[in-house]
Design a protein around this nucleic acid. Structure first.
Lengths: 236, 236
DNA sequence: TAGTGGTCTAGACCACCGG
DNA sequence: CGGTGGTCTAGACCACTAA
C-alpha cells in the first residue's frame, strides 16, 4: 500500500530468504530509485526501516550492506521491537487463559497516575493466567478504564482483549512504555506458574497507548523465568 | 548542528521544562515550519524523533499533542532507548571496577558465530565487577576481537572500554542487539554481587556493532536483581 | 468542506569515503 | 577527485478529522 513499506518488505524478504547474503552490498540508493521507480528520499526511508530492524548498515561514502547475522536470529529481531498481545505473539500454538479475577474497581492513586485519570474513575481489573501448550507462562494483572474499553465481558478476557479492542471497538493501538525487572516469586505466583520456592520471575510493567495518545492499559505481567526473554535492537 | 535535531531538542526541552504541558496541542507543522524557518518535511522529521521517544502523539486531521505522562518519568524514557556503556550510564556517581579476568583466548564456536569471526581468531576476554557507590551492580563478561579493538590494556578495563574505543581508537559505535532473560544466581555471582542463596539475577546478552557494521563486542552481563530495570518504548 | 499530518518527488548542497 | 549517503527544500497529492 505505502510505497516505502513495500520496498522495505521486498528487500527484507531478499535478506531473510538469503538472496542478499550477509556482508553483501546492496545497490546504491540512486540505482534502487530506478529499480523501484521512486525518488531517492523514498528509498532512503525504506532502507532506514531495515536499519532500525538491525538488518542492514549504511556507510556514507561507501554504500549499504547486509549486516553479518546468521539468519536464524533474523526472525526474532524483526518481531522483537514490535508490540502485540499475548495471543498474537504465540499464534499457532495452543493458548489457554484462566481468568482469576474479573471486576470493576475504583482505581487507587498509582493506577490513576499511570492511566492519567480523574479521581472518581472506574477501571476493569483483570487477572489472568496464560498458558502455551498447557504450560503456564505468565500472570497478567491488567487495568483498563471502563469509559475507554467499553462493554468488555469475561468472554473477551478468556480469549484476546486486544482483538476485542481493535476489531470490535475499532480502536487503534499505537505504542507501549514497558519496564522490565526481576524479583523472587511469591507463593501465589509459585502456585499458578508451577514454580518451586525461590524460583525467580520477570516483571513486565506496561502502559499502553491508543493512536490518539490516551493511555488505555496499565498492566503488570509476571513471567515464569524459564519462558521469558526480551529482545531488542538499540540504535545510538 | 543538524537542523531537525536542533528543532527536536528545542521542543523536547519545552516539554521537559513544562512549557508545553501534558495533552497540550503543539503548533501545526505548517506553523512550526515558519517559526523555525524550515520546510514541512524537516519539521516532520524532528517531531518523529519525539514520537519515537514517546513524548508526543500525532493525529492526522487534528494535530500534534504532548503525551499524558508525568514529567518524573520523562527523563527515564529519553535515555532508555539509548545505548551507552556502564560508565556513561551512571556518570556523576562513584563507579568502581574490579577486573577479575583479563586475557586473550582462542574463541570457541559460540563466540565465533556471535562475532562472525574466522576459526583462528583471538579475542580479549574480560570479566569485571562494576559497582556504583560501593554497591556491586553487575558482572560483565566481555569478548572483543583483538584485531578490531587493538592495544587494549588492563588499565582501560579498569575504567571505560567504550571511551577507549571511541576516543583513543576513533571507532564509532552504532547499535546493539540485546536479549534479556532471568535465572537463579550461582555461588560465584552470589559472592561478587553480595547476594543470598536463591536470589535471582537478570541476564543481558548483547552483540554490539560499529558504524561499519562489524560486530566488535559480545557480552553477557549478570545484573543484581535489586539494581536492574530496563525501560523501552515500543511503537507498533 | 477546510485543514491536518502522511507520502512522494526532483533537485540542491553537504560530509564523508575510496582510489 | 567522483560518488556515496545525509540533509533540506518547495510543492504536489492523499487520507483523515472535525465542524
Amino acid at each position: 500500500m505505502i510505497k516505502y513499506m513495500e520496498i522495505a518488505n521486498d528487500i527484507r524478504n531478499q535478506i531473510v530468504k538469503g538472496i542478499l547474503k550477509p556482508n553483501e552490498q546492496l545497490l546504491f540508493e540512486k540505482d534502487l530509485s530506478k529499480v523501484y521507480s521512486s525518488s531517492k528520499m523514498t528509498i532512503k526511508k525504506a532502507l532506514d526501516i531495515l536499519v532500525a530492524e538491525g538488518l542492514i548498515v549504511k556507510r556514507r561514502g561507501s554504500g549499504t550492506f547486509v549486516k553479518s547475522i546468521n539468519s536464524s536470529e533474523m526472525d526474532k529481531l524483526i518481531v522483537s521491537n514490535q508490540f502485540r498481545g499475548f495471543s498474537a505473539l504465540y499464534s499457532g500454538k495452543k493458548i489457554d487463559t484462566e481468568v482469576l479475577v474479573f471486576q470493576v474497581i475504583n482505581c487507587d492513586e498509582k493506577i490513576r497516575t499511570k492511566l492519567n485519570l480523574d479521581e472518581e474513575q472506574f477501571v476493569y481489573n483483570i487477572v489472568r493466567v496464560r498458558s502455551v501448550n498447557n504450560v503456564p507462562y505468565v500472570i497478567e494483572n491488567t487495568y483498563m478504564p471502563i469509559n475507554i474499553i467499553q462493554g468488555l465481558k469475561k468472554a473477551h478476557a478468556n480469549s484476546s482483549i486486544y482483538s476485542y479492542i481493535e476489531e470490535d471497538l475499532g480502536l487503534k493501538i499505537q505504542s507501549s512504555h514497558r519496564k522490565i525487572s526481576v524479583r523472587k516469586s511469591n507463593s501465589f505466583e509459585q502456585e499458578h506458574l508451577h514454580l518451586e520456592a525461590y524460583d525467580p520471575v520477570a516483571i513486565a510493567e506496561q502502559v499502553a497507548y491508543l493512536e490518539n495518545g490516551t493511555a488505555f492499559e496499565y498492566s503488570i505481567s509476571v513471567h515464569s523465568y524459564n519462558y521469558f526473554s526480551f529482545e531488542t535492537v538499540i540504535i545510538r
